[in-house]
Nucleic acid binder design. Structure first.
Lengths: 200, 200
DNA sequence: CCTACCGATCGGTAGG
DNA sequence: CCTACCGATCGGTAGG
């Protein structure tokens, strides 16, 4: 089991490392990741693990990227075929609520877990997190703008205010579920979304 | 400067430690607190600092308690004299928004910063955080219930749904300000509160 | 991918 | 409140 492996095997190991690190980070945070712990969990040496990334910060960046891809795959893609505008916006919100209610990762949604951890830590990891959050916001705003311009939502609706309130509902859902173990949180978030996304 | 000090001096040192630890934790998290760093910041030895608390977990609990007291003092007390029910609820929300927009601590609201850090870490620190969050929720619900029963808010208003939405607005405000440095977040939160807390 | 190792720092204790 | 110390672990490097 020692010595160099094939390129394919190395790629597999690397993706295993990132996947496991994502799970750990959802519970302990990105700063709580330690090379020694990950190496032990996966049966690798510390240097064997670190060799895939160079240093810890690069590993953290790869984990953020993997989490961004996973979120996109699990929340957006299942509803990407829905008609643009209001129907798609409604579908994405349902999908988002389902994701936050699921146990895709042991610590819940990766981004909800690391946003407050890194909002005060300048550097490339923070910028990566901000980048994914901003991209998500832009995708949703595009749908909201379309829904307003086609008259699916009331004229004069401010897309950014709408998304502020949707985001708030998702944050409250996450806090309710994870901190207070409140089983009604998903229903409350759905109710907010239902009210916000009503045709005129 | 060495040797035992008076009881008063010791109390002063202790409260200085807790205050500083609260600031650090608002940025680095409660787990990011280290005895060595705090001791150096305050010009103490590690053992001198730790002697006030016994161990790190106890220090973390004292920090949570101090943060709970500070939040109460800065958000609730300034508006405690407002008439119970809807007026008080509105005043508390304004006060809460002002607090989240202020820079009372370098990392922003302590509780916003540590909730996702400890939602998956069982133990007395988590329980202390949950306790303060639940107490806050109960205080607000009392006002909301009163506002509904006196007819200040529409009959049939669900106080818990109302608070879910208020909490969401505050979480979105915090994320907007701290992650995206969005200066419009406070106004958006105020708009949500204004709509939610309208007389029938 | 490994072993062997580095200096720094972690939380905490003994003893004064 | 200090100095002096403990074993464990941190991120990371050298060399293979």
């Amino acid at each position: 089991m020692n010595g160099r492996r094939s390129v394919t095997a190395a790629r597999h190991t690397r993706s295993q490392i990132v996947r496991h690190a994502m799970s750990v980070a959802s519970v302990e945070g990105l700063e709580g990741l330690t090379i020694g712990r990950l190496a032990q969990d996966l049966g690798l040496s510390k240097s064997g693990l670190l060799g895939h990334f160079g240093d810890k910060q690069t590993l953290q960046q790869r984990v953020v990227e993997a989490a961004g891809a996973q979120f996109w795959r699990e929340v957006w893609e299942p509803v990407a075929a829905t008609a643009a505008g209001l129907p798609r916006l409604r579908a994405v919100c349902r999908s988002w609520i389902a994701y936050l209610s699921s146990d895709a990762l042991p610590g819940g949604c990766f981004f909800m877990a690391v946003v407050t951890e890194f909002d005060d830590r300048p550097g490339p990891v923070r910028e990566a997190i901000v980048g994914y959050a901003a991209r998500w916001h832009h995708e949703l705003r595009r749908e909201a703008e379309r829904a307003v311009s086609t008259g699916e939502l009331p004229a004069g609706t401010d897309p950014d205010q709408l998304l502020f309130e949707v985001t708030g509902a998702m944050l409250a859902l996450n806090a309710g579920r994870r901190l207070h173990r409140d089983p009604t949180a998903a229903g409350r978030a759905a109710q907010v979304v239902h009210r916000l996304l009503q045709a005129p």
